[in-house]
Design a protein around this nucleic acid. Structure first.
Lengths: 359, 359
DNA sequence: GTGAAAGCGCTAACAT
DNA sequence: ATGTTAGCGCTTTCAC
């Protein structure tokens, strides 16, 4: 059926191990001429290694498992893409399982992946981090990316939310705002806590007074942002700018401001957080802090591969910093607006323009 | 290290094959008592089959490969989720590779996957469908989901765009509109052609005149929709409703209408296509035809598994119908507005409300 | 630098 | 119904 080492050995007159040493890129010394002959034969015959056999023998599969809470979560595909692109450089592939925010399914996913030929596991946006005896016993390296709850743990990659919040606030201060409101996320999310901390720290750094009257609780959702902004507008001294802990609430806030007959950014500036897709198409286009999700995925993959290949020891939580994406909702001068990276829609268009798809 | 069949054989006194017959759920007859003993031992000892070994022996891996143009494309994650959820029922997992809209990378991806232990391949939103000798030789079953270009081919799953367009137009007609404009997509996309056909057919079905003056070309993008609507508004007899071939152009159209001082849906009704995420949060919330992407992925997985397990013969192109999602931009009575399925954000919230995440 | 032998863990074929 | 034997394709000793 398919070409195997034995076929190439027969065709070239060398033994199977020698052929293996060449084709598996072993560091074992092989005569240069021999190598050439074998390489050529393999190319002509179309040799593809049987990775099951190799994996059985070496206990390495060049495959890692990803357990994501849900591939459809807003950040997950981009995190996964970051992981995949890093892995791709080293001929690793990824197997993806969803845990659907459920501790039991998560355990099941771990069990599934552990018995699979995977060299390690990345947990993406996992909410539970339930202890798994199976996982520990398997000794498979595993790392975490974008943990949503809990205290910092080793081998995890997270966004630097405090830094991100400081960027947003600093930008607004630079624009001349002195009364900057904050719409928070739910308190049990440490993302929200850190962003709040960053907000406060940055105000302090510029000697601006912290006023709890212009800090509103939020729920991450559109409605929460809308209500929060409404509350802020009804204050005796309403803020001139609002920093929202996420984009969805920022969107709600913008609608609330517009519903009150005011304009964003002319009357009130708004900055969001996350750089969700809709911030680019909504008007005014929303200034936001970029969640460095791609880089987080990339870094998590890097860490995992180091653990697999180089036996990298456990590392403390790694924080990744995002940039601020300046658009229209903050009222910055147009010349300051940062260029968006290419979106996939643009790539599609490039195909259409430059290449003729075959019919 | 890890428990294998031999260990269980020793522990129970039975032979390795007998243990295998029980634990691999073979249909081979085994004494009920024996089965119980072995099952119990396996449970206690924590047996996990080594799938590399099994795969080497059986030439089956319970893994399929997915080649997607880009995991970050708007539809891809949902298609993939549909695939995964179907596979999950049969203990199959999926390996995902991106081809980045590039024919060479696509070939590379095919080569990679073919040498991997995968039982079949699903091409998601592939644009090239270049012939691959390697793929043909491998004899691995493969199916296509959401092909973007080209004529219908066997073993592919696509949306029924003509039907979807007819739903949109029928809905607008039901709302009393008689002059319904159409904003098209690029002509070399058969999605666009089919939607146009559906538009025309539905007008005809209701004896409404087709007027090419209110058909505008488009580019799938925001700008194209904006410009198209502007053109339509400048007509002597502007339409009372606009059906846009996708949501992004519908959004552009809505902005153009609003910029002209008119209101959606009061002055002009707008219906989009795709049910992209932003249509739910934008105001007015956009009525749109649902791309049945999840179901398409599900169906593609079903087809592939049938080919793998039951040697299902080649099937003609399978068309999947989507529903219309009635929201605000069409001006339908509020009681007609269809409920959105749960989005992942809602699921997150459920966690927050019902469960206490451990700290 | 190359080859012979062994074996990774499993299941299919053949025996009993 | 259970056990014996063989071998999937590969890489790793260990000889030479």
């Amino acid at each position: 059926m398919s070409v195997k080492l034995e076929d190439i050995a027969k065709a070239t007159g060398f033994s199977v191990p020698t052929v293996s040493r060449v084709l598996a890129r072993s560091s074992y010394p092989v005569n240069a001429v021999t190598r050439q002959i074998i390489l050529e034969a393999a190319r002509i015959m179309g040799y593809k290694p049987n990775l099951s056999a190799r994996s059985l023998r070496t206990d390495r599969s060049n495959t890692i498992g990803i357990i994501a809470d849900d591939l459809l979560s807003p950040f997950t595909p981009r995190i996964v893409r970051g992981i995949q692109d890093y892995l791709n450089q080293y001929d690793y592939l990824s197997l993806i399982v969803n845990s659907d925010w459920d501790a039991d399914i998560e355990q099941e996913a771990i069990n599934t992946l552990v018995s699979r030929p995977v060299d390690g596991i990345i947990f993406v946006e996992y909410s539970h981090r339930t202890f798994s005896r199976v996982l520990e016993q398997s000794k498979k390296p595993h790392v975490f990316v974008h943990r949503l709850f809990g205290t910092p743990i080793k081998n995890s990659v997270v966004p630097d939310d405090e830094y991100g919040a400081s960027l947003a606030v600093r930008h607004l201060i630079g624009l001349g705002h002195k009364r900057i409101a904050y719409i928070n996320g739910p308190e049990n999310w440490h993302n929200a806590k850190k962003r709040f901390t960053g907000y406060q720290a940055e105000l302090a750094a510029y000697q601006l007074e912290f006023d709890s009257a212009i800090v509103q609780p939020g729920d991450w959702e559109f409605e929460g942002g809308y209500q929060a902004a409404k509350n802020l507008l009804s204050l005796d001294q309403p803020p001139t700018a609002i920093f929202s802990a996420n984009d969805l609430m920022a969107l709600g806030a913008i609608y609330a401001i517009q519903d009150a007959g005011l304009s964003v950014p002319k009357d009130i500036a708004v900055v969001g957080y996350d750089n969700r897709d809709f911030t680019k198409i909504f008007r005014p286009r929303i200034t936001t802090v970029i969640m460095p999700v791609y880089e987080m995925g990339w870094t998590a993959a890097e860490l995992l591969l180091k653990k697999i290949v180089e036996d990298q020891e456990d590392l403390d939580e790694i924080k990744i910093r995002g940039q601020i994406q300046i658009r229209e909702s903050c009222g910055a001068d147009k010349s300051l607006i940062t260029k968006d990276e290419l979106g996939s829609a643009t790539v599609v268009r490039r195909i259409l323009l430059n290449k003729q798809p075959e019919s």
